[in-house]
């Protein structure tokens, strides 16, 4: 197997596995930059995956080939609505952000599995007819070498994820809205003094995280698993959280980390078909994202520091 052939397998597979992580990690960035810790990302992905699959199965004969994309939009809405629970608890009711996040995760798994049994009378859904398929990107696929590696046998959602990451970077670092969002996460009192509505900004941050987490779950369900069961989302949300931290709460950093984790994930799955990887036990690839995140937090790979007011309630008038 030539090096070229190996790259042609690994790169599209990496980008595919990275896509859900990129979306969800970006969601985490929005929430935590506004000062709300969100370990409910896993639950938001559950909601997104569930919604997209159910919508896809129900409306596939209405929308035809556009179904997966419309299902993705619905998953986005569902994630945003579900994240409101976290926002209300963590911002308005002053719940501990971590505890509320745990509740979101428990609630999402319980509710979606309950609804699957309610709707389909069995533990998992059928397999969807129209998911995200492999495509060749027009024009770009004809570029010599690069075209073959990056733009053939790949998925639209992979590139959408990268584009959204760039947009997120622009919003957070180059617009007044982004400045306000970051200021609320760093020093809410100063932001309040300058006339920024802390509560509103934090609500927006959490809702954006829900929308992006919902997309992440939807992408995973429609491009990778193709159905919804208790094992569809198993840790991708926490891996996205890890990517966000490993990327130091920066959109492009989170994207890079997510692509790297996607690489590790895809290697652990396709590794057995690659000659030089056969001898490495897949357990190393499976735990790599988590070990690296711990090392990054401990400061061995560049210190990762959270926004100053991450997880701190803002109570007007208190110092």
């Amino acid at each position: 197997m030539s090096f070229m052939q190996i790259l042609m397998i690994i790169v599209p597979s990496t980008l595919l596995w990275a896509a859900p992580l990129v979306f969800t990690a970006l969601g985490g960035v929005f929430s935590e930059r506004s000062g709300v810790i969100n370990i409910g990302l896993e639950g938001l992905m559950w909601v997104g995956a569930f919604t997209s699959i159910v919508f896809n199965l129900t409306f596939v004969h209405v929308f035809g080939n556009a179904t997966p994309w419309i299902a993705l939009l619905v998953a986005m809405l569902a994630g945003a609505v579900f994240s409101l629970l976290h926002a209300v608890a963590a911002i308005t009711f002053r719940a501990d952000h971590t505890v509320s996040g745990v509740a979101i995760n428990l609630l999402a798994t319980g509710l979606t599995l309950f609804l699957v049994k309610f709707i389909y009378n069995k533990g998992e859904t059928d397999i969807i007819q129209k998911g995200f398929n492999k495509i060749d990107i027009p024009v770009l696929k004809d570029i010599p070498i690069i075209g073959k590696i990056f733009f053939q046998n790949t998925y639209w959602v992979s590139f959408l994820a990268i584009i959204v990451a760039i947009i997120a970077w622009y919003i957070i670092y180059k617009t007044p809205f982004g400045l306000r969002l970051r200021s609320v996460g760093e020093h809410p009192m100063a932001a309040d003094t300058m006339g920024i509505n802390v509560t509103k900004m934090r609500y927006i941050g959490v809702i954006l995280s829900g929308a992006l987490g919902g997309i992440g779950g939807g992408v995973y369900a429609e491009a990778i698993s193709s159905n919804f069961s208790h094992a569809t989302i198993s840790g991708q949300g926490f891996m996205a959280l890890a990517a966000m931290i490993f990327g130091k709460w920066h959109p492009l950093g989170a994207m890079g980390a997510a692509i790297f984790f996607g690489f590790a994930q895809s290697l652990s799955i396709i590794g057995s078909s690659l000659p030089f990887l056969k001898s490495i036990p897949s357990v190393y690839l499976l735990i790599a994202p988590y070990v690296l995140t711990i090392l990054a937090l401990a400061g061995f790979i560049g210190r990762a520091e959270a926004p100053k007011a991450d997880g701190v309630h803002y109570i007007k008038g208190s110092r």
């Binding site: 505890v99 979101i104 428990l106 609630l107 319980g110 509710l111």
Partner: peptide, 22 residues
């Protein structure tokens, strides 16, 4: 009734304990 209902109830209890400020 699907047994996941109990998981929902447990999650809701956690949620309400977390939001006990209210």
């Amino acid at each position: 009734v699907p047994n996941e209902l109990v998981d929902i109830i447990i999650a809701l209890i956690v949620f309400f304990v977390a939001a006990s400020y209210i």
